[in-house]
């Protein structure tokens, strides 16, 4: 503290010109870290430190209580031949492949519609966005009600249309698709808003010029609007892919991984391995596997967008 104090006075005292450089450096460093230090310490302490630790745990057989047993890469080797993990990976990928393109398509379509100067646009936007604010827990519980085979609204609608009744979340073959529909209900609001903002950034005179040159509405969309939405599409694709690969909450509050493991996802698997079966080592290895796959897909998408000359990053 006395150094800080001295530093401040020295600027007014020209005689102390030689030490003032070092004192001022110290003062600057202390001020800088005074600002940046607390948050940086928290972020590093709660992510880099545990991330490194998670890797060390993944090289062990450990239940959190008994002494850990170092087993090298055995956890990773076991991952390759674990049929339950393989099934979880398959479910997660199926969900991702269903969810990401439909959320992007639907988001873009709704945003284009909401960008028209028509009545009730505010009402529509509010309706479509509100589910995004609802938590996954509440969404899951509500969905269990709506898709309940006996007294759910979904089957009532099917009955009114004269269609056969479905088991939805209680059917092994339908559960994952239904969870995807629920996730879309909760997430599309986000893509809509992001696309809407991008649409409003497209200069009006470009569109008008294209119309003057005789382009019809579809041609304007195809050759002016769509290319302008490229960067946002890259961003939302990556964002939604990461979200999809980490699916957990909705599964927990609808099917708890069932029926018969049909909706077990990777993160759900990590959760059960680590916190139900206390296999901390194996759980950490699977989590690292997920991290690696997420990184690969993200980097792949960025490289692909670079090659297609879409400047997103």
């Amino acid at each position: 503290m006395s150094l800080l104090f001295a530093g401040r006075h020295q600027s007014a005292a020209p005689r102390a010109a030689i030490p003032s450089g070092r004192v001022r450096w110290l003062h600057r460093t202390l001020t800088g870290w005074g600002f940046a230090g607390p948050a940086t310490a928290l972020v590093v302490g709660l992510s880099i430190f545990p991330a490194v630790w998670a890797f060390l745990i993944s090289l062990q057989k450990w239940n959190g209580i008994a002494p850990a047993k170092p087993i090298g890469l055995l956890n990773y080797e076991f991952m390759a031949q674990d049929p339950d993990l393989l099934a979880a990976v398959r479910h997660t990928l199926v969900f991702t492949v269903l969810f990401v393109p439909s959320s992007i398509f639907l988001g873009m379509l709704v945003a284009v519609a909401l960008n028209r100067p028509i009545k009730l646009v505010g009402f529509y936007r509010t309706c479509i966005f509100i589910p995004f604010v609802a938590s996954a827990a509440a969404t899951g519980i509500l969905a269990s009600f709506v898709f309940n085979p006996q007294y759910g609204a979904a089957n009532s609608v099917l009955r009114a249309l004269g269609l056969p009744q479905q088991q939805f979340l209680e059917s092994q073959s339908q559960a994952l698709t239904v969870i995807c529909l629920i996730a879309l209900w909760g997430q599309v609001g986000f893509t809509v808003v992001v696309y809407l903002a991008a649409l409003q950034d497209i200069p009006k005179d470009v569109v008008e010029a294209a119309r003057m040159d005789g382009a019809n509405r579809w041609q304007v969309f195809r050759h002016v609007t769509l290319p302008a939405l490229g960067p946002v599409t890259v961003f939302t694709s990556i964002w939604q892919t990461i979200t999809a690969l980490q699916l957990f909450d909705l599964v927990f509050t609808t099917t708890r991984g069932g029926p018969l493991g049909a909706t077990q996802t990777i993160v759900y698997y990590v959760y059960t391995q680590a916190f139900k079966l206390t296999k901390f080592g194996y759980g950490s290895a699977v989590a690292y596997g997920l991290f690696a796959v997420t990184m690969l897909i993200t980097v792949g998408m960025i490289l692909y967008s670079r090659r297609s000359k879409i400047e997103a990053f």
Binding site: L46, S47, P50, W53, A274, A287, L290
Partner: peptide
């Protein structure tokens, strides 16, 4: 740290 997913941190953070 932005790239590190929360799931990876759960186990060591719990410990």
């Amino acid at each position: 740290t932005i790239m590190i997913p929360a799931q990876l941190l759960m186990i060591p953070t719990y410990v």
